[in-house]
Amino acid sequence: MPQDCQELVETYQAEGVIRVRKLFDADRMAGIRQALDRYSKQIAPTLPASDVTFEADGQSVRNLWRMEQHDAFFSDLADDAQLLELVRELVQGEPVLMAVETFNKPAKTGSGVPAHQDNAYFCRTPPDVLTVWVAVDPVTLANGPVSYVRGSHKLGMLPHKPSGVAGNSMGLDAPYDDSDPFVGTLEPGDALMHHCQSIHYSAPNTTDQSRCGLLMVFRAEHAKVDSQLKGQYALGGPAT
């Protein structure tokens, strides 16, 4: 990670999201692509429906969930010492891995993501939780980059409601200012790291270029389950 760690921490605290160039180098990304291909071909077909979400065509994979439970490669990847050093600073505590998953957004069929805050799903207090979003493919302005409302992590938890979107079952039920978003364009191996209360969303992918992201979710050890948020999430239904 070539950027100054303190600068990244300060930007994260101010805006709720940072872009880290070359989190993983080309050789590491080649290994990740190989592991994803193996996972998709050998493991995904054996998984319960709760651990795979498909696009509307019923064939293109939209999300793979709980990958760290099914393949040691992905739990080991999240144990990267350099990555954890930065995550530790950002969550202000000892990092605990919560999940490894993908948001695939296949060419032509990749669906959009409604505006939301991740803590509507994670239900943690204090909200010292973040997502590391690693670009497997180039992420361009055209193929559905993630956009963030700068500083929205400071607003606290806003109302959410069921979205009806498979894989993103909760959507924001409050107005938000999207006039100056942070748009997460990336090259393969680059990463976004965003706070669990940052408002974010993305458009569908209508291009010929796939846009796969590999996500790792970490909480600080001291971030415990918030029973009130958990109850609200239960009323909205589980992510599907």
Rank of each mutant, 00 (worst) to 15 (best):
Q3A: 10
Q3M: 09
Q3D: 12
D4Q: 14
D4P: 11
D4E: 15
C5P: 15
E7V: 12
E7T: 12
E7D: 12
L8A: 11
L8N: 10
L8R: 06
V9A: 15
V9S: 14
V9H: 07
E10G: 03
E10R: 06
E10S: 11
E10Y: 02
T11S: 12
T11N: 13
T11P: 07
Y12A: 11
Y12L: 09
Y12H: 13
Q13D: 15
Q13W: 04
A14V: 01
A14G: 02
E15V: 03
G16E: 09
G16F: 04
G16N: 07
G16K: 02
V17N: 09
I18H: 03
I18L: 07
R19T: 05
R19G: 03
R19D: 00
V20E: 04
V20W: 06
R21H: 06
K22W: 02
K22N: 12
F24E: 00
D25P: 11
D25L: 08
D25G: 14
A26D: 14
A26Y: 00
D27G: 11
D27W: 01
D27L: 12
D27A: 15
D27H: 07
R28H: 09
M29I: 10
M29L: 14
A30I: 00
A30C: 14
A30D: 15
G31K: 05
I32A: 05
I32T: 05
I32F: 03
R33W: 00
R33S: 11
R33E: 13
R33T: 06
R33M: 07
R33I: 00
Q34S: 14
Q34M: 08
Q34R: 14
Q34E: 13
A35T: 00
L36H: 02
L36E: 01
L36S: 05
D37L: 10
D37Q: 13
D37H: 06
Y39N: 03
Y39S: 03
Y39F: 15
S40C: 06
K41C: 08
K41A: 15
Q42R: 04
Q42A: 08
Q42D: 05
Q42Y: 00
Q42T: 08
I43M: 10
A44Q: 05
A44N: 03
A44V: 01
A44C: 07
A44P: 05
T46M: 14
T46D: 07
T46N: 10
L47T: 01
L47E: 01
L47K: 01
A49V: 10
A49H: 11
A49R: 14
A49G: 11
A49P: 10
S50W: 00
S50K: 09
D51T: 08
V52N: 06
V52S: 10
V52H: 05
V52Q: 07
T53H: 12
T53M: 10
F54L: 15
A56W: 00
A56E: 10
A56L: 08
D57A: 06
G58L: 01
G58Y: 01
G58M: 04
S60K: 00
